[in-house]
């Protein structure tokens, strides 16, 4: 990574956790180091919110939220996060759907509601200042509740933050095998580590 502090100034407990992850998963994703570095400043609170945003409740399935995450990351052109969450989505909904959403959500075999949400999330991700009540009206016409819209926004916000960290700090891209392992971990542990 581009900052040496994530390794050189990591606490003993952070190093131990990274080593345990490496032992169990075969590698230690850079994102873990960043979340653990001075975790009281940022990582603990930010990482701790992911379970709620990605898995809590029934407004959207976990798989649908992973598709949103992969989609938003793709729109931010964050290769690291797009790969990781496409792999996670693939574990839940299948590789074909995960790929299709990232490549072209307009033709992906997904629900009408999810497709409408992704159209909105694209606009929110790329040009938030242009988002207005008309966008909400279209989501409501597509059958989304206000709560579903808010839930989708939460996914977008979390990934608009983490995408920027991944790209600025230069997270190492992961191999296919690493992505498959990470996808299985996120799909089964649901962000509760």
């Amino acid at each position: 990574m581009r900052l040496e502090i994530f390794d050189k100034k990591a606490t003993l407990s952070a190093r131990v956790i990274a080593q345990v992850v490496r032992f169990v998963e075969g590698f230690s994703p850079d994102i873990i180091k960043v979340f653990l570095y001075r975790k009281e400043f940022f990582g603990e609170r930010f990482q701790g919110k992911f379970h709620d945003v990605m898995c809590d409740g029934t407004l959207w399935t976990h798989g649908e939220r992973e598709l949103m995450a992969a989609f938003v990351s793709g729109k931010n052109k964050c290769r690291y996060c797009t790969d990781a969450h496409r792999a996670t989505a693939a574990q839940i909904v299948g590789d074909a759907i995960a790929q299709a959403v990232v490549i072209d959500a307009s033709t992906a075999p997904i629900s009408h509601q999810l497709r409408a949400a992704l159209v909105f999330l694209e606009k929110l991700t790329i040009s938030p200042r242009d988002v207005d009540a008309g966008d909400i009206a279209r989501l409501r016409e597509a059958g989304l509740s206000y709560e579903q819209i808010e839930s989708a926004v939460e996914v977008c916000v979390q990934f608009c933050i983490v995408n920027r960290l991944a790209d600025t700090f230069g997270f190492r891209l992961q191999s296919s095998k690493q992505l498959a392992n990470e996808g299985k971990t996120l799909a089964t542990k649901k962000y509760k580590f």
Binding site: T125, P128, I149, V153, V157, C160, I161, V162, L165, T168
Partner: peptide, 22 residues
Amino acid sequence: TVCAAVRAGIERYQAAMNALSE
């Protein structure tokens, strides 16, 4: 970097909440 990234997130949250409220 963290502050800038969080700012980007907050901007999007506020934009969406304003649209919902409207």
